[in-house]
């Protein structure tokens, strides 16, 4: 019974984090990095993987030691654990992927301030068991990743004419393609995030309305 129940809960967490309660377009958290890194798919992929990793493991750790943490220093301990994992990511990148580390620059350190991680630690890991918290952190990261990759595809394609650094539009159109400079700069991410929020909310509202329609009768 418990296994089946657990599986149900896991699926529920997955659906919530990827769609119904997505960190970007519903909770509107982690927007700073959405604006900063999404003009380049490679950086976006590494950054969002880093966030998923940090969220998953900090949720796991914090949930595991939840009963031991004194209330007064709860948030301080959360930040400590989050920074620990982020610095580990930074060290690994510097040692094994120096080129990526160079191009991400200060962004890796800034994962610490990503609101999603702290949000999951406070909102979920505090009141749930470690493994489920790990899963919640991981899927939150994936929900974040999905939206960021979508935005990065549009921005890199129109801003540079390439995907993952491989020329696409520039190769197809040659000099006829003019890069959209705005797409490289942060403001374009504002427009794109707004469009994602708009589209996803519209779809969710429609789904809700059609579910209620038979029961509610006239509208």
């Amino acid at each position: 019974m418990s296994a089946a129940k657990k599986k149900g809960k896991g699926t529920e967490v997955l659906l919530q984090n990827l769609w119904y309660n997505n960190p970007i377009f519903i909770q509107v958290l982690g927007i700073c990095s959405t604006l900063a890194v999404t003009n380049n798919l490679t950086n976006t992929a590494i950054m969002t993987l880093g966030v998923s990793f940090a969220t998953a493991f900090s949720s796991l750790t914090l949930s595991g030691m939840n009963k031991l943490i004194p209330n007064k220093v709860r948030m301080i301990v959360q930040v400590l654990v989050i920074s620990f994992y982020v610095i580990i990511i930074d060290i690994v990148l510097r040692a094994y992927l120096p080129d990526i580390s160079r191009s991400l620059g200060p962004y890796v350190g800034l994962i610490i301030t990503n609101c999603i991680i702290m949000g999951r630690a406070e909102g979920f890991a505090r009141s749930n068991p470690p493994l489920l918290s790990f899963w919640d952190g991981l899927t939150s990261g994936l929900g974040y990743m999905g939206v960021l990759m979508l935005i990065a595809v549009v921005r890199e394609l129109l801003g540079f004419g390439s995907l993952f650094g491989i020329p696409i539009l520039t190769a197809l159109l040659g000099d006829a393609f003019t890069p959209w400079t705005i797409m490289i700069m942060a403001p374009s991410a504002f427009f794109l995030v707004a469009m994602v929020i708009w589209a996803s909310k519209t779809i969710q509202e429609k789904a809700k309305a059609s579910k209620q329609a038979p029961a509610g009768g006239t509208k």
């Binding site: 031991l68 943490i69 004194p70 007064k72 220093v73 301080i76 301990v77 400590l80 654990v81 620990f84 610095i87 580990i88 060290i91 690994v92």
Partner: peptide, 19 residues
């Protein structure tokens, strides 16, 4: 509170220095 914070810091910083 003081003891816990101290020990937690020592624990995590130890692994960071190791890495």
């Amino acid at each position: 509170t003081v003891l816990f914070t101290f020990l937690v810091c020592v624990f995590f910083v130890f692994f960071l220095s190791l890495a």
